[in-house]
Design a protein around this nucleic acid. Structure first.
Lengths: 135, 135
DNA sequence: GGGTTACATAACCTTCTGGTTATCAAACCA
DNA sequence: TGGTTTGATAACCAGAAGGTTATGTAACCC
């Protein structure tokens, strides 16, 4: 059980079943059985995956009689992107496609500033010694 | 050992030591001993972490006499962001800060289109059944 | 050639992961 | 009241992750 938020987020995303669950939840709330349906996997297995997602803060749950509807909670995803954003200079390799991607990401905003540079914040990581952010 | 690229990428990022290593490499090439120095951890442990990063395609290695300099290879990070990008609608929670983040990400481009919608591509995941992308 | 530096590999251990089946609890339905 | 859904939990298991120490190997330096 990773204690740091980023650990938990990335670990949660590292499993294809969980990514698929998130994808499903992006289409709207769903119950456990609904989520479990597409998988050749037992219901308890899905419950476990949901618990991982919940502990990572990626999923929140409501109550509707016997049902426990799951809802996507994407803030940790944003934090993950924020971490990854510090590496944007190293994506330069193919800036064409990167620009396309970022245009897509931009959802229609109109920026006019130029590269303020990394925030030099804390990773929150502290593995056994250093923090971790690019310079 | 996760077989799917995204699995490997996210799994690699889930460890704080490895994130710190990537952060260090963002400052430039480094040898194994240089990378190991800041950690209270044995050299073989670092070698293992490097192997994980290498298999995830996040690090490539050269040769300089006895040394095996490591170089950051950030393309998988871009792919990870591409996956996360499909969830941008769900970051809406605090669009203020999101916009700031994306402006930062944008490194200075000037888009003028509005929300083309998810690419509906393949996750490549195929856990035990469905793929995974939001709608 | 012989020692040293830089790194990889092997063998081992412990803990976490991801799955299973079996069972239990709560709220519905008749 | 009793049965059915919906879901969580427990107990178990195999294999992967992350660490260790010990050892091997390649290239340098004298």
């Amino acid at each position: 059980m990773p204690t740091e938020p980023l650990d938990a987020t990335f670990a949660a995303l590292a499993d294809p079943t969980r990514r698929a669950i998130l994808a499903r939840l992006a289409a709207g709330e769903a119950t456990v059985t609904e989520l479990a349906a597409p998988f050749r996997m037992s219901q308890p297995a899905i419950s476990k995956h949901l618990k991982v997602l919940e502990r990572a803060g990626l999923v929140s749950r409501g109550r509707d009689a016997q049902r426990r509807p799951c809802r996507l909670q994407a803030r940790p995803l944003r934090d993950a992107v924020a971490w990854l954003a510090d590496y944007r200079d190293y994506w330069a390799e193919s800036y064409q496609r990167l620009d396309a991607l970022l245009d897509d990401l931009q959802t229609g905003g109109g920026p006019d500033d130029a590269d303020p540079g990394p925030s030099a914040g804390q990773d929150g990581a502290t593995p056994r010694s250093p923090d971790g952010r690019p310079g």
